[in-house]
Design a binder for these strands. Structure first.
Lengths: 114, 114
DNA sequence: CTCCTACATATCCATCTGGTTATATAACCT
DNA sequence: AGGTTATATAACCAGATGGATATGTAGGAG
């Protein structure tokens, strides 16, 4: 049983360089397993494994289409991640602002720089 | 020797739930190891390990301050990651726009306005 | 100096991960 | 049906990862 929640799985999926390359490729349009395998030296099963990870993270999706099963990006899935990072940045810059405000009000030296 | 580049290490650092929690805590202000350890049930050495990972990823920094060594966020380090994600989203939405344009121009509509 | 505190480092262990090759399945093509 | 193509699954392996406990080190308090 895996109790990790959505963002765990998504961030973990992004942690691998090959998978990020696959995502970048898919951002330019859907592609089959064979096409995705081309640029890499690793075996086809290895790619299939990566695709499974990405799909279970909800980052990509696939449809059976005849003999092949092309993958495509699920861009909505990215927002959770960017939101987290943006939230972190905002949290920090806010607290930094507070710090600056604090320092400005507390600093005994009325002048600085130069 | 580790040939992984910056974003590999950063994304890998984010892949762990505990480390993300540490970052979230640090976003609210700097904190010592003991303070960072408090909310977790894991041992202090485990926290130190996580902090090392985060520091080597350039996500946090520390200064020796007397007996303690408080950590703080290095927010610039986040931009590389958000940039990557934003780039991916943009790439996708652009290609989606192109697809829409393509479909609009190719559709064998029985009628088209001049 | 001696003890305590805050943290780092060493060693060990179980589990996870990313890769491999071999094999299975399913669709398409004579 | 028999052969090829596209992809998935199984079994296996080496190395990375996250945790533990034990110990080291350096600064502050007595």
């Amino acid at each position: 049983m895996d109790i990790r929640e959505a963002s765990d799985v998504k961030f973990a999926a992004l942690a691998d360089r090959t998978r990020r390359a696959i995502l970048a490729r898919l951002a330019m349009g859907e592609a089959t397993v064979a096409e995705l395998n081309k640029p890499f030296q690793i075996s086809q099963p290895a790619i299939s494994k990566h695709l499974r990870v990405l799909e279970e993270a909800g980052l990509i999706e696939s449809v059976k289409l005849g003999q092949s099963r092309p993958r495509r990006l699920r861009p909505q899935a990215l927002t959770e991640l960017t939101d987290w990072l943006n939230g972190l940045q905002k949290l920090w810059s806010d607290s930094f602002d507070r710090l600056e405000t604090f320092l400005a009000s507390e600093t005994p030296s009325p002048k600085k720089e130069d």
